[in-house]
Amino acid sequence: MARWSVRWQPLFSGPIAVAYSAGPDSTALLLAAHERWPGQVIALHVHHGLQVAADDFESRGRVVCERLGIPFSSNRVQAVHEAGQSPEDAARQKRYRALASMAQEVGAACVLLGQHADDQAETLMLALSRGAGLPGLAAMAERFERHSVMFGRPLLGLPSRVLREWLQTHGHVFVDDPSNTDQRYTRNRIRALLLPAWEACFPGFRPMLARSARHAAQAQSLLDDLARIDMVQTGAPPAIQGLQALSRERQANVLRHWLRSSFGAAASTVQLDELLDQVADCTTRGHRIRIKVASGFVTREGECLVFVSPDNTPPI
């Protein structure tokens, strides 16, 4: 199990944090990290308060860590979703923020996450079902930064079955989250219905889907490079005339990159098409632009486009 960790070693110059829910995936990751870096690992637990069993997850995780001599830190969050936001997205965003905060408090060099090959396949299938672009089809990155903290997913090459078999073979205990079988959630339906069907039709399909995700990530990286080149001409925030000098496809690429990299906002296809139409029609000083994008608005301010978040007042 610990063989995955060798190429992660250069990242670490301090404590190594593991996002530990007490479930099978994070338990396998915690044990493997503890074996590879004894005395350096810290367990970070996020209590979402979304179900009665959450208290049991926290207490059982604490007991495991006490037995192993691993420091255990817990943070309770209120993962209530806002209007138009899915419960899963709300919980995920609160979880990352809580993990980053705890990691910074303990001076951790990186937070390791227990997502595995099945999670990667589910993420790609979910993106396909939503008609996602390259960022969605790239699925989950092996390494990424969020809230000024480095996160890593060292188990992406291992199926869930391998992790569970390893735990059971060595007699390690873990808890199963009952919400993982609730088919009201799309990801759970994919896990229960689609993954077995793919396995029956295409045995060993997980590495193939992972390869497709890597190809999408590479293609998106090239588009990001092109966007940075074009933004030398358009500026940031982008000047309307600078955008108009580009093809519509390159305008779209610049706007996607600007919104994503500067504000973490992703425009839908309909929103982006409407915004591109407005940019094309913007030939007079009096032309107003105000397009809903994600949770804010893209508006015209002088000769440039600006993004206004819900916390700010849109320009008049």
Rank of each mutant, 00 (worst) to 15 (best):
W8I: 00
P10S: 08
L11G: 01
F12H: 10
G14D: 14
A17T: 04
A17V: 03
V18Y: 04
A19Q: 06
A19P: 04
A32M: 14
Q40R: 15
I42V: 15
A43D: 07
A53D: 13
A54S: 15
D55E: 14
E58N: 01
E58M: 14
R60N: 13
R60D: 08
G61Y: 08
G61K: 01
C65A: 08
E66C: 05
R76I: 05
R76T: 14
V77I: 15
V77A: 10
G84T: 09
S86Y: 08
E88C: 15
E88M: 13
D89N: 06
A90P: 09
A90N: 08
R95W: 03
R97M: 09
L99F: 07
L99N: 07
A100G: 15
S101F: 08
Q104K: 15
V106T: 10
A108R: 04
L112P: 05
Q115T: 11
Q115E: 15
H116A: 04
A117P: 02
L124I: 09
A127Q: 04
G133E: 11
M140D: 02
E142G: 15
E145Y: 02
R146V: 01
S148W: 03
V149P: 07
F151C: 09
G152S: 05
R153V: 07
L155V: 00
G157P: 02
L158M: 12
S160W: 00
R161F: 01
R161H: 04
T169R: 14
T169H: 12
T169K: 13
G171E: 05
H172E: 09
D177F: 05
D177M: 03
S179N: 12
T186A: 14
R189L: 10
R189D: 04
R191A: 11
A192G: 09
W198Y: 15
A200K: 13
C201P: 00
F202C: 13
F205C: 02
F205E: 04
P207F: 02
M208C: 06
M208F: 08
A210E: 03
R211D: 11
A216S: 15
A216R: 08
A216V: 13
Q220D: 14
L222S: 06
L222D: 09
D224F: 03
D225F: 07
L226H: 12
M231Y: 03
M231I: 06
M231S: 15
T234F: 05
G235V: 04
P238S: 11
A239N: 13
I240P: 03
G242C: 05
L246P: 06
S247N: 01
R248S: 11
R250K: 10
G264V: 05
D273S: 14
L275M: 10
L275Y: 01
C282P: 00
T283S: 13
R285V: 06
G286S: 10
H287W: 07
R288K: 14
R290T: 07
I291F: 01
S295P: 03
T299G: 07
T299N: 10
E301T: 07
L305I: 06
D311V: 03
P314S: 11
